[in-house]
């Protein structure tokens, strides 16, 4: 009789075995309170160090927006997109959410090795918690964005409500990417060094501070191709909902939804596949 058979006969299960996907997701759902509390507390802990505390959540992106506005709108400017400030702020705030979700998601397992080695919980909670953290930071920024919009446009429209499903899709998309980058970083820590460059490339190719239509106006194929760039799709849909003079298209909504659920499915599967490996020292 083999040891495995002997174990089975006495009702013993293999320790550390990766549970089937459905069961794994159920376990993760049961432990959601842990992930949520970790996000909320991590934000509080991070803010407690600074004198201005949680105000930095709003101050930082505002300064960032102002700097980009100064550089791309005034110094290089000349060819500014219409309604520039709301245009720019929408782009900068939403982009910084996706960017920070990927970069903190990437290190969510490797920087929590102590936790992984001492407690047992579905490791998926770690990237989930870091994306949730960024999402909690995004919410006051959206509030600020709405204030900016009211100041510049002096008009509130029902289209603003479309931001709710759009933000949900963005969060799902960011979670998917965080899962993928978290596992990749576990295999190859060096990836961590490359993520800032990937973020830069994404920043310059997603029309955060320039109008894609103008820059790529002479290359219609390239412009059409840009519709499949998820970050661009999210940001231009958000502008369509919020900023005067811009419109949404159903096809871009479809692109957003496909990217979101595609990234989620691939991310969950990809991360779960290596569940047993997290915590190993190589």
């Amino acid at each position: 009789m083999s040891v495995a058979e002997y174990a089975r006969e006495h009702g013993l299960k293999r320790v550390g075995a990766r549970p089937p996907l459905i069961q794994y997701l159920k376990m993760a759902w049961q432990r959601r309170d842990f992930a949520i509390t970790m996000s909320v507390f991590a934000n509080q802990a991070a803010n407690s160090k600074n004198r201005l505390g949680k105000w930095w959540v709003i101050l930082l992106p505002t300064i960032q927006g102002a700097v980009y506005g100064l550089i791309f709108g005034v110094i290089i400017g000349g060819d500014r997109p219409a309604n520039f400030i709301p245009f720019l702020f929408t782009g900068v705030f939403l982009f910084s959410f996706i960017q920070s979700s990927i970069s903190t998601g990437a290190t969510s397992v490797t920087s929590n090795l102590g936790l992984v080695r001492s407690l047992n919980f579905p490791r998926m909670l770690l990237p989930f918690s870091s994306v949730l953290r960024q999402f909690l930071n995004l919410l006051p920024q959206i509030g600020l964005l709405l204030v900016v919009l009211i100041v510049f446009q002096q008009n509130i429209t029902f289209n603003w409500l479309l931001m709710i499903p759009l933000l949900a899709l963005m969060a799902i998309f960011a979670f998917g990417l965080a899962l993928i980058s978290a596992r990749l970083t576990v295999h190859i820590e060096d990836i961590n060094k490359l993520i800032p460059f990937a973020n830069r490339v994404m920043f310059y190719t997603s029309g955060i501070f320039f109008s894609m239509e103008r820059v790529l106006g002479n290359y219609p194929t390239l412009l059409k191709l840009m519709d499949f760039n998820p970050v661009y799709a999210f940001i231009s849909t958000a502008r369509g909902a919020l900023v005067e003079g811009y419109s949404m298209s159903p096809s871009l909504w479809l692109v957003c939804a496909s990217w979101a659920f595609g990234a989620l499915l691939v991310g969950v599967w990809f991360f779960w596949k290596a569940e047993e490996r997290y915590g190993r020292e190589d």
Partner: peptide, 30 residues
Amino acid sequence: AGLTPIAGGGVYAFARPTLLGVGAALMPAL
């Protein structure tokens, strides 16, 4: 406890063994 992946062999148990310790989850700033 199933916290370090093993390179060979197997561990079987009727319930998940738990290592007593929680330090890694705590946050000093709180």
